[in-house]
Design a protein around this nucleic acid. Structure first.
Lengths: 339, 339
DNA sequence: GGCGGGCATGCTATCGTTAACATGCCGTAT
DNA sequence: ATACGGCATGTTAACGATAGCATGCCCGCC
């Protein structure tokens, strides 16, 4: 009793395999009666359509490769979720890979995923190895870089300026009257988006003639609550008179906040804290955390939209060169109780 | 300039396609010199191995289908991550699907994913539609149900007793001297694991002769911080003299905690709070949250282990019936500051 | 009545790789 | 010198679906 294939179903239904094939396609032209009969017989026989064969013959896989730094982060998870929501109607399946914030690993992943012949690929960030760039350019499929606006995009891009996000928080601090200001983040260049936020923040500090040295770096990403707490400790030791600090993400900001609470330091009375990412926790913690909303879900939605448009354009009788799309989103400041 | 295939590479390297194929297989028998030459030529030509053809011919896809309720939850994300870590060495690619806590959607996903011919499939929970069960039983691949110990497993299982987890927290409450005790969770049967925890909790309440009516149900899953806060409000209104409450997860527990903080209610002085899941936030919040560690990552690791063992067993010359594995993990109570 | 068009269905070749079997060559044991 | 084993490589025929084209039939229009 081997697993039945289309030929077996065709025989049982007394039609050609081609008709069975058509019965399984949404769009194909089969009479309703025939389709129903075939589907019923197929279900009874326990037939399960074999995508692998279909993929090979039709040269379409229905895969979208999606590469993120990690799935254990609500921001990226939100983006992936929104993207897959946007693609679900089209029977597209996401092939997920994560890099752990390492562009070497990203290269490895890209190579591996391209072998699966995805119909498009989305990346997080705009920094890649030269070989990764080459592979992507030669792949002949739509490429979308997200969460960033690379100076030299490979294909499409859906993102925002992380530097502007950093600047946004600094301006908020200044407007609130804070002058001795620090930044807590990672220490390597692995998280280039976090680094960009720091650069933007520091540049704005300098423009205001403020001290730009109060920086705490707490190791390689991910920078989470624990690192935030540790960094706050370090900051308070080195520069006890600091009035405000931005953290690279809400998670580290929350860690920093808890450290203050444990030490009986009033937030924002003695020190103000700003985060990034508009995580759930920032909205709910007490005091609620001032943060920047980069609109993770919107990045996913827009990415899905670009991909569907590209796909639609290519499906035309005369596929034309689909123009590059650069979708620039604007991060929003959410002022709350910690500043 | 179409994309080159194996034949093109073979021609350029002056060997047969078969030799190129072997050069790309880790295990195959090709002389080092030939392999190196082929790989170099392939890279120069921009050849990218086509898995879709390989999958069809070899009847092996290297896919593992993984179905979770949602990826926007640190617990499930941890499990998936640990699992993919365990499988990475074998060049296995995870095909991720999420159900939004809906077994109809799960059935749809199972059908869709099986068409991709995964070599194994893992599910979250043990409750499925009849058709889903049938599809899984007929699929002829290893099936692992996780995060639960189903009474009648389809194949393997890696999980723990959610009822025991609920009981564990109740016993802790009682040992601490609390008597008027409530439970905050979802209201539907969609999250069967959360429901099991509640049942276990209530049964234990009853055994101690305590009031079992202080239950707040806050809508369909996911139950997160917002729902936790709302539910705490409801609990305090209906039963203001409640001494302790367990929440279905740390996220809702944190929400409940923040509601108390906003109202100036001392935790645990006036009310104790217990969570579930050992999320990061439970460890870091102030006061730190008493919780139960279900060991999400270990579930992933054990699942990967079972799959690899099964796979290994089937690869033998004489594949035998691989015995069913039921891996029972034990949730641990982490007593902290909220109780 | 003849003819054109649209719809349902069938036939054949093919997608790119690899399982299975075949071949040839070299070294070593007898 | 002969035989045999082992390794590197080649040949052929699939894997299971479907693109592209062909066919037959029914219907309506002039």
């Amino acid at each position: 009793m081997a697993k039945p294939n289309m030929k077996d179903v065709a025989r049982a239904a007394n039609v050609s395999p081609m008709t069975v094939s058509r019965a399984f396609k949404q769009s194909a032209t089969v009479s309703d009666a025939t389709r129903e009969r075939i589907m019923k017989i197929a279900e009874e026989m326990g037939y399960v359509f074999d995508s692998t064969a279909s993929n090979l013959r039709s040269q379409k896989t229905g895969f979208i490769a999606v590469i993120v730094p990690t799935i254990n982060n609500a921001n990226f998870a939100d983006t992936v979720r929104a993207m897959s929501e946007g693609l679900r109607t089209q029977d597209l399946q996401i092939l997920l890979g994560y890099t752990d914030y390492d562009i070497q690993e990203e290269e490895r992943l890209i190579e591996q995923l391209l072998q699966r012949r995805p119909e498009a690929i989305t990346l997080t960030g705009g920094k890649h190895t030269p070989r990764a760039r080459r592979l992507l350019l030669n792949a002949g499929i739509p490429v979308v870089e997200t969460w960033d606006l690379p100076p030299d995009p490979i294909g499409h891009a859906v993102g925002f300026s992380n530097a502007a996000a950093g600047r946004l928080m600094l301006e908020h601090f200044v407007a609130r009257g804070y002058r001795r200001i620090g930044f807590i983040g990672g220490d390597e260049s692995r998280d280039s988006r976090g680094l960009e936020r720091r650069y933007g923040f520091i540049r704005a500090l300098a423009e205001h003639g403020l001290d730009t040295t109060r920086l705490v770096a707490s190791g390689p990403p991910p920078i989470s609550m624990h690192e935030g707490a540790m960094s706050m400790r370090e900051l308070l030791e080195k520069w006890p008179d600091t009035e405000a600090v931005m953290c690279v993400s809400d998670l580290s900001a929350f860690g920093a906040l808890t450290e203050c609470q444990r030490r009986g330091i009033d937030v924002p009375g003695q020190i103000a804290i700003g985060g990034f990412g508009a995580y759930d926790i920032a909205e709910h913690c007490v005091p609620a955390l001032t943060t920047i909303d980069a609109n993770a879900a919107e990045i996913g939605r827009q990415t899905a939209k670009v991909l569907l448009e590209h796909r639609h354009a290519m499906a035309g009788k005369k596929p034309f060169e689909f123009p590059q799309r650069i979708i620039q989103l604007t991060p929003t400041l959410l002022p709350r109780e910690t500043t």
